[in-house]
């Protein structure tokens, strides 16, 4: 008889799990149809302080998120819902329609523009420069990187630029993908595991000050030039236009500068 009991117990557990699963799904659907503003799922990067990160209550936070919250406040016809997603999965989530808007200081490049929709207005300067260990002078341009170990994040524009360089040059750059954001890049460059990294001047300052000043920035020339934009799925042109209008407003009335100072200690449009 005992074996029957066990069998039914298992069945009950399964049935219970399925029922609770379905129940909560229904509840979620009801609340979605009940409210009038259109829900927009927003994906924000997970480990890029101060722009997009997860705060200690496990909520998405940072400059990008703050700007989006302000935009949402001015666009009551939408209801933004935020979730944190790793950079390399952000664009994939956009493909899979899990989110309609992605942000982690995205730079424009033609391949991205082919697949996704960019806002026309940028919301931060994002010119990037090479970063090396303090006192090192042999690296000035991307061509000096050939044969050297360079760190970057998967899915970043830096990765795209470096991989493209390798496709068209015989003397290849040794691209090392770094997982834990800028603290790891700092650590690896200082300890000699990496020869160089790529950062904006702001990020460089912030990282360098936080961990003890062991890095130098290459001042002579830029690695890449761009602003940071929000990325949307191809069919969200209406949302894109709305965000552009609000971003212009925010630039005009000083809100964007205020937010930028709050999070990055500098204006949004300076390097």
């Amino acid at each position: 008889m005992k074996k029957h009991i066990l069998f039914y117990f298992l069945l009950a557990v399964i049935a219970g799990a399925l029922l609770t699963g379905c129940g909560s799904k229904q509840a979620a659907e009801q609340s979605a149809s009940g409210s009038s503003p259109r829900e927009i799922s927003v994906g924000a990067g997970s480990n890029f302080e101060p722009y997009t990160y997860i705060d200690k209550d496990n909520q998405p936070a940072g400059y990008d998120v703050a700007v989006l919250k302000e935009i949402n406040r001015r666009l009551p016809q939408y209801q933004f819902k935020y979730q944190s997603i790793e950079l390399k999965n952000l664009l994939l989530s956009l493909d899979a329609k899990k989110i309609q808007l992605a942000t982690q200081q995205f730079e424009r490049n033609p391949d991205r523009e082919n697949k996704y929709l960019f806002t026309n207005e940028g919301f931060a300067n994002y010119d990037k420069r090479l970063i090396v260990a303090k006192g090192r002078t042999d690296i000035k341009t991307i061509d000096d990187l050939a044969g050297k170990k360079v760190g970057c994040g998967q899915g970043s524009n830096t990765a795209a630029i470096l991989e493209k360089y390798n496709q068209s040059h015989d003397n290849k750059i040794n691209i090392v993908y770094v997982q834990n954001g800028n603290s790891a890049v700092y650590d690896d460059i200082v300890n000699g595991r990496l020869d160089a990294g790529v950062m904006t001047r702001k990020t460089f300052k912030r990282t360098n000050d936080a961990f003890g000043g062991g890095l130098d920035i290459v001042d002579d020339n830029l690695f890449s030039k761009s602003e940071a934009y929000f990325i949307l799925s191809k069919n969200e042109t209406q949302l894109r236009d709305d965000i552009d209008t609000v971003l212009k407003e925010m630039k005009a009335d000083g809100t964007l500068s205020k937010l930028s100072y709050e999070y990055t200690n500098s204006d949004y449009n300076v390097e």
């Binding site: 699963g21 799904k25 979620a28 659907e29 979605a32 829900e39 799922s41 979730q83 329609k97 899990k98």
Partner: peptide, 9 residues
């Protein structure tokens, strides 16, 4: 349309 589904599902 699956955009509103929980990712846990």
């Amino acid at each position: 349309d699956v955009t509103q589904w929980e990712k846990l599902y």
